[in-house]
């Protein structure tokens, strides 16, 4: 932790792999009077998959939604502490939420493609952020995004058909393609497989592993097997507190905390 803070203060070392992509420092979240998150400090390592696990209502989704300020849409929500993205506090006044969300993309629990064509779904982000100058560039982004999301071969002949007509797993990959079309640095996934069958889940998990090469990924999951399969780092939340974090293999085989052990062995949760 100490080493990392030193790293962030030194401009020379910015963007070295050592420096975390995002870092929460003493993040607390309140919904009205109710506190949902207590002093969470967590670093998200670059080009790794970080999984957030814990029982329902433990605050893992709340933390995830702080990372691209999706909590802003909830009127009564208040966030304290600091969340840094490349050495900037994203809750700083000068930060433009619109730009932030282009840099920190999000995939939701339930596949939610826009009721527009497959092409339009993927093209939407680049379009509103003005990332392309020509139709050819836009076509290129759409194609490469769909390809990276492992969907291109399945949909290349029907790019103009509605995205809502795809199967659940395809829809979720479309949402991933849509999210990576703005070339984000970090990709947040909020239980991306909970509405999918095991085969579609396996496809997405494989995809997550491939995406790690280009993106930093944070995934909230209910399935400890999934966390073990896809992530390099795991953080365990309970009752709004970060209980334990560490390398996934360490955390699952050798948890330091009693609560973590109880949870991963199925005694609580």
């Amino acid at each position: 932790m100490n080493v990392m803070q030193q790293a962030t203060t030194s401009p020379i070392e910015i963007r070295t792999p050592k420096m975390p992509a995002m870092e929460g420092r003493a993040v607390s979240v309140f919904y009205g009077q109710k506190q949902a998150l207590y002093d969470v400090s967590l670093a998200i390592e670059r080009n790794q998959v970080t999984s957030l696990i814990g029982p329902s209502g433990c605050g893992k989704s709340t933390f995830l939604r702080c990372l691209n300020r999706m909590n802003d849409t909830i009127d009564i929500c208040r966030v304290t502490g600091e969340i840094r993205l490349d050495d900037e506090d994203i809750y700083n006044r000068d930060i433009d939420v619109v730009e932030l969300r282009a840099r920190v993309g999000m995939v939701f629990q339930k596949p939610n493609p826009f009721p527009k064509s497959i092409y339009e779904n993927v093209a939407y982000g680049p379009r509103i952020h003005g990332l392309t100058r020509s139709k050819i560039e836009l076509d290129e982004i759409v194609t490469s995004s769909l390809r990276r999301a492992g969907l291109f071969d399945e949909v290349k002949d029907r790019l103009n058909e509605p995205g809502t007509g795809l199967s659940g797993g395809q829809q979720q990959r479309l949402c991933i393609a849509r999210a990576i079309a703005t070339r984000p640095e970090v990709l947040l996934m909020d239980e991306p497989c909970s509405a999918l069958d095991p085969i579609a889940t396996a496809v997405i998990e494989e995809l997550i592993d491939e995406l790690r090469e280009n993106f930093t990924i944070v995934i909230v999951t209910h399935s400890m097997q999934q966390a073990a399969r896809v992530s390099q780092k795991t953080a365990f939340f309970h009752l709004g507190k970060l209980i334990e974090e560490g390398h996934t293999s360490d955390l699952f085989t050798n948890p330091k905390n009693k609560q973590t052990q109880d949870y991963i062995t199925g005694r609580i949760g």
Partner: peptide
């Protein structure tokens, strides 16, 4: 979910 999707895309 549509609103979330739009906000999530930075709309």
């Amino acid at each position: 979910s549509i609103r979330e999707a739009a906000f999530g895309m930075g709309a």
